[in-house]
Design a protein around this nucleic acid. Structure first.
Lengths: 210, 210
DNA sequence: TTGTTATATCGACCGACGGTCGATAAAGCG
DNA sequence: CGCTTTATCGACCGTCGGTCGATATAACAA
């Protein structure tokens, strides 16, 4: 007895299950058969919807990046938040654990998920940089920021934020994080040419100061 | 007729060939059989020297990082070079194309070599950060640099330098590079708290200014 | 010289993987 | 009802990383 479903439904099922597995076990360590077992379909069905395992990964990354961009857009539109905080929150909204889901982080960017990682970073930068151009320009007009290369500065900040706190290239102890976050904010301030301490009020929101 | 060689010789042969293939075709797209064909050995011989394909990769990365660190050490010892230039040259010495080999870059960090990339970055940061601590401290004592978080600053600069210019996450056109390099130097200056333009003399060494 | 041990090499074999393909069942439609 | 389109199936394929017992050479001891 075949359970026949409309194409788009099946496709989303495959994407959801694959995403969970890729995030939990890593792309390389998730076999197509693993996915098939959970979705409960045959191999032919999988390859009826996707040309390859990698195509599934690419679709998932588009989803993840788009979700982050959506969160950022909502925040950036909210004129009730001070400009500086708006920008910082939009950047941090790319890392979902600040959005409530705490456990995911432990699994997501850890272990050997280099392929997901690299593709995500590339796509996220491409998507987020233009989004942040406007508020940053606004800040420059308001004399809050002073930059010669605003676009490149945004790129570097997004890059640093991701590499420092979402990857596992540094193996920091828990008690080192406050210092690392402060150092990161200090570097952001300097690159953006703000007054020193401009971001501190923002930092206190998270009670991260020692 | 078996060509019997001393263990270390074989091991180096395998490492050399593997490195060339990993760099040229990528780690994933290089099969153990590819290596066997060129070194002209049987599978058993390969696994007599290495427990896995990944162990070969790790050994290669140690080599690459160590070569870069050696180049950096030579430069940093040379007191005839002004301090700022010494530091910048040591950082750039991590990217071999500035050392003369131009073609390698095209192949090395391109395509889908995410595993080599990630492991290299991690190892390079671990090796290079302590090396740069001394000259940076020297610069702070001489009132050239002004940093609150020197170690984190070095980490960020190494990270940015690698991600911006050695990876393929940004797909820049050739004519964009001068601007990107200037923006990078500008950000370094700000993070390190130098006088603006401190690094320009250094930049001119490469004739990169427009 | 011969026996023994340590070192080095071989290649058939294995299970798992990503991916293909022709058969076939169900749905939609004139 | 016949025909096409859409969706599903699973046996099969080539390749891959990795294993293992056989075996040849070198090194050394008796």
């Amino acid at each position: 007895m075949k359970a026949i479903k409309e194409g788009e439904v099946r496709k989303r099922e495959i994407l959801e299950v694959s995403r969970e597995l890729f995030v939990k076990k890593g792309y390389d360590h998730t076999s197509v058969n693993d996915i098939l077992k959970i979705v409960d379909i045959a191999k032919g069905t999988f390859y009826y919807y996707f040309a390859s395992k990698e195509e599934v990964l690419e679709a998932i990354i588009i989803d993840i990046v788009e979700e982050g961009a959506k969160r950022a857009e909502v925040i950036l539109k909210d004129r009730s938040i001070p400009l500086v905080n708006r920008i910082m929150l939009a950047i941090m909204a790319q890392t979902p654990e600040f959005e409530g889901v705490d456990q995911i982080k432990e699994e997501m960017h850890k272990v050997e998920n280099t392929k997901l990682e690299q593709l995500y970073l590339k796509a996220m930068l491409k998507r987020m940089t233009p989004l942040l151009r406007e508020p940053v320009s606004e800040g420059m007009e308001q004399d809050i920021f002073h930059m010669e290369y605003p676009t490149e500065c945004i790129e570097s900040i997004l890059l640093l934020g991701h590499m420092l706190f979402d990857c596992d290239i540094f193996e920091w102890e828990m008690d080192e994080y406050p210092k690392k976050i402060q150092a990161f904010l200090c570097n952001i301030e300097r690159m953006m040419g703000t007054n020193e301490g401009e971001l501190n009020s923002f930092l206190q929101m998270f009670g991260q100061l020692p």
